[in-house]
């Protein structure tokens, strides 16, 4: 509905330029009105929730402005949650970036429009962005107490991976599932940069008498470095903000920041500590904002080589 009317508004301008049909004499509704449905929607379901989430951190239970909630960010439990989140994000981002970059290099051996490539692209997208809870199940089936891998190791080698306690449902258990979605994300985001490496560059190095190593150190590394660092930040942000996998694996406790927010949201009324979730959300957004500013700065450097 709205689409038809909003397009209609632009009619007079276009008819004038065409010069075929005389302008109709009716009240003109300005074209920018066509932008209002989208603007109203984004305002109500993006801007307002963001402001409420961040703003509520500064309000007490009665709605008065206060900084008291922010003291929650100094609590030992919250600080250790932030540390655990940084550790999980850092480790999985690093492993994911290195393995993902290697896969990107491997992908250059395939035809870009081949069937194998499109299967890999689709699998990467599914695992990187739509797994969530389902990836937690995948790892419970693999390295859970009754998992395939756990049983094989125990039956054939006598190795009990849970000898020191069942770590799958603790913070260390997040590492493998997170790496499982970080590597595909790296493949998706880093591949354009790798594909942008021009064969002429290696030919130029070869013509000048350079080796494969010269080409790698003096051409490939400098060209890909900004993009690699940018993707590393993106992976870090991705792990830092993901919730579903952790929530499905860790049903008790709040060892990482998103789980702290879950605990705060669920128990807010019980403990009488209003708006703690808002303060935690603020902490998360500050981290995300820093990451994204750095990312876009690096991305601007990257683009130079993708034209």
């Amino acid at each position: 509905m709205s689409s038809a009317t909003l397009i209609d508004e632009t009619a007079p301008a276009a008819t004038r330029s065409a010069g075929a049909v005389p302008a109709r004499s009716r009240v003109r509704i300005p074209a920018w009105l066509g932008l209002t449905p989208f603007a109203a929607y984004v305002l109500a379901f993006l801007a307002v929730p963001c402001l409420l989430a961040l703003g509520s951190g500064f309000l007490d239970a009665d709605g008065a402005v206060t900084l008291d909630n922010l003291t929650v960010l100094g609590e030992p439990a919250v600080q250790s949650a932030f540390l655990a989140s940084f550790a999980v994000s850092g480790i999985t981002a690093l492993v994911g970036a290195v393995v993902g970059a290697a896969v990107c290099w491997g992908l250059t051996a395939l035809r870009p429009d081949g069937a194998v490539r499109s299967v890999i692209d689709s699998v990467s997208s599914v695992l990187a962005q739509f797994g969530g809870v389902m990836l937690a199940f995948a790892f419970i089936a693999t390295i859970g107490i009754q998992g395939l891998f756990t049983r094989i190791l125990l039956d054939t080698l006598g190795v009990d991976i849970f000898a020191g306690g069942v770590w799958l449902y603790q913070v260390p258990g997040l590492l493998l599932p997170y790496i499982y979605f970080q590597v595909p994300l790296m493949v998706i985001t880093f591949m354009p940069a790798v594909a942008g490496l021009k064969p002429q560059w290696s030919e130029a190095v070869a013509t000048l008498g350079g080796t494969w190593w010269n080409h790698f150190v003096s051409v490939v590394l400098p060209v890909l470095a900004p993009s690699f660092l940018g993707c590393l930040l993106l992976l870090f942000a991705n792990a830092f903000s993901s919730y579903a996998t952790a929530a499905a694996l860790i049903s008790q406790g709040a060892q990482i920041v998103p789980l702290q927010i879950r605990a705060a949201l669920v128990s807010e009324t019980v403990l009488g500590r209003a708006n703690v979730a808002g303060a935690l959300a603020l902490g998360m957004v500050v981290v995300m904002a820093v990451l994204m500013v750095l990312y876009s700065a690096l991305q601007r450097r990257t683009e130079r080589w993708q034209r």
Partner: peptide, 21 residues
């Protein structure tokens, strides 16, 4: 920019503000 904001704001943060909405 508007369309990309939801990436910077994790769903877990958005849900804090979506609850009152």
């Amino acid at each position: 920019f508007v369309c990309i904001v939801p990436i910077t704001v994790p769903a877990i943060v958005l849900v804090v503000g979506l609850a009152p909405v």
